[in-house]
Design a protein around this nucleic acid. Structure first.
Lengths: 346, 346
DNA sequence: GGCCTCGATTGAAGCGCTGCAAACCGATGT
DNA sequence: ACATCGGTTTGCAGCGCTTCAATCGAGGCC
């Protein structure tokens, strides 16, 4: 390893130093930290003062070793570029703060290898448990096949139908339905769904929601398009292709599987002077991204409760951690409609 | 297909169990893990087999307690929504992997309170040191005023002129210069800079680079605009305002302080049929965001070496950790030009 | 053969903290 | 006056691992 050059601070204060200064025993200092209710108010004061004075920072390693458990949970995020995951982190962190837990993050880039490695690192640091965002069934299977971990895992943003884990996810079918119903409610009838590929479970679900909403009212889709991906450029191409059909009156509403897609479509349509939005055609996106509100024509969208997802995940984890007789459960969260100008009634 | 039940391991194997199974002493197991060069090859084999068999996961808390140091470093990111920071994380993680260190992330949302809290959590887990991305001078001052930490901090994406810390940052003045020179090189002469507010140090620097590039060639700016912020919507407004001036031939090149800004400008201009890009006007952005390549007219941009920044930061940290006689240093990284269609020669 | 050397292995001593049971103490009840 | 009783405080025994000095054993050498 490294040569013995390990002293930065002359000597970091330990619990004994604090105890000495405060004139109590180390145990009492420990109690102040962990079970303040057992300690007399005056003593707490003395000890706190000593802690401040010495700038004592308890050694987490020693704490968790002695206590046999941590107050840390791991969170593996699969795409830091996606605001949904950032929201999940935000929610989990917020709630963690509340219950006095700390969160450590890891970024898997959606790669299975890194998901596994992150879980390993977490297990080494003896987290209480881990939250893991998952995208597709293959990863799910791989994770489930891991040797039974020491600490519970809660799966986020993926519906674990087998209930091998606790899971929390967002109801994308419902989201698609909500988006579609909104267009129907504002008087549109000739709707097209834009989104692909269907190998992405959320996209597939949104499409299913779209179809279900129409079916419920005895309508059928004007069309369904599956661009290669769901980015702005794909939307732009779709928009170009759709423009003539809009002018021909073939369709009056577009349900896009993502805000980027919707933004691209709107952008393409804006370049056609004879099409004015939202009169000629309503467009709704999905995700409540920056792209949606930060657009010349603010885009209606379906907002995913990422923050709530984070909170729900952590809650599940804490439950599982507490009980011995635990049955895995799934929590389903509902997305919500955010109407903006792009779907205003004409 | 999948095991229907998972139960937690009754008792996780410890180093003694491994030692027992392998028929050696716990010390030897420890040596296999930490100083394999001291152990006979045959013994290593035996021990490794036992470890696998028992699925032994060493207890990190105990390790770092006994060893007195960790192989973990903390990384505080100020904006997970910005791909630069995600790249920094990627770079740091990559290099960390290489040198056998693990990274724990925290998300500060650019809030000082959370930056401080994250550093505290890191210190409790006795990281080797922390990487901290900073935005503005106030935070820098607050962090510098903290009681001298036990572990070194390296500041990222902020030029610490006082050298209170090691720092690694990207040369935004140079970036602005490169962007501007590119427009000049492609025959544009009447350039305008768009970006604000100047309280963001990077924006200010980019503007300075813009001015410097012009000055070098004895030119002066056609104009400088300072929208409230640097998002797409701001760009869109700027674009609307600029359109008539472009038609009037007042300007033929736009240097935007961010890709979102550039994308907004281009979007606004695209709606004016008589302006065609990039013939009428060249636009260059900054950041190499998705917004830049994923645009109907791919946007030239200046790419920031986020990955390299992460690597540089971790390198600085490791240096500081190793040596006793350490002098803080700053590493400056150069951004690079990515020419795309939006600045093609007319 | 006895002695020395050197790589490989081991036992014991903590790392800094927490949990627990035991100890303490002033107050209360009889 | 003495036993009792909560609320507080304390001493002690580890938590699971690493480290370091001590030990072991197999050659090598005179």
């Amino acid at each position: 390893m490294l040569p013995a050059t390990r002293k930065r601070n002359a000597a970091a204060a330990g619990i004994d130093d604090v105890a000495g200064l405060a004139g109590v025993s180390p145990s009492t200092v420990s109690n102040v930290l962990n079970h303040p209710e057992r300690v007399a108010a005056a003593t707490i004061d003395k000890v706190r003062r000593a802690i401040d004075l010495l700038q004592y920072v308890p050694n987490g390693a020693a704490r968790s070793l002695a206590a046999g458990s941590t107050r840390t949970v791991g969170l593996v995020l699969s795409d830091l570029g996606n605001s949904l995951f950032v929201d999940i982190a935000r929610g989990a962190e917020e709630y963690a703060d509340e219950i006095g837990v700390s969160i450590i993050l890891a970024n898997s880039e959606g790669e299975l290898r890194r998901e596994e490695r992150a879980l390993e690192v977490f297990e080494q640091s003896r987290v209480r448990g881990s939250l893991l965002t998952l995208n597709d069934a293959d990863h799910y299977r791989a994770i489930a096949a891991r040797p039974p971990g020491r600490s519970p895992i809660v799966v986020l943003n993926y519906h674990d139908v087998f209930e091998l884990f606790c899971s929390a996810y967002i109801d994308n079918v419902f989201g698609g339905e909500v988006a579609t119903s909104h267009l129907l409610d504002t008087g549109r009838r000739r709707l097209v769904f834009v989104g692909g590929p269907d190998s992405l479970q959320p996209v597939q679900d949104r499409r299913r929601g779209f179809l279900r909403a129409l079916e419920t009212r005895g309508l059928s889709p004007a069309d369904q398009l599956s661009p290669d991906w769901i980015n702005r450029a794909d939307g732009w191409r779709v928009g170009r292709a759709l423009a003539p059909r809009i002018l021909a009156g073939e369709l009056d509403g577009i349900v896009a599987a993502s805000d980027l897609l919707a933004a691209g479509i709107i952008q393409a349509l804006a370049e056609v002077p004879s099409i004015s939005l939202p009169e000629a055609v309503s467009v709704i996106g999905y995700d409540n991204n920056q792209a949606a509100w930060d657009s010349p024509i603010p885009i209606s969208t379906v907002s995913q409760p990422g923050v709530a997802l984070g909170v729900a995940g952590l809650t599940l984890l804490e439950n599982e951690f507490g009980s011995d007789t635990h049955r895995h459960e799934s929590v389903r969260l509902q997305p919500s409609l955010i109407p903006r100008r792009s779907t205003e009634r004409r």
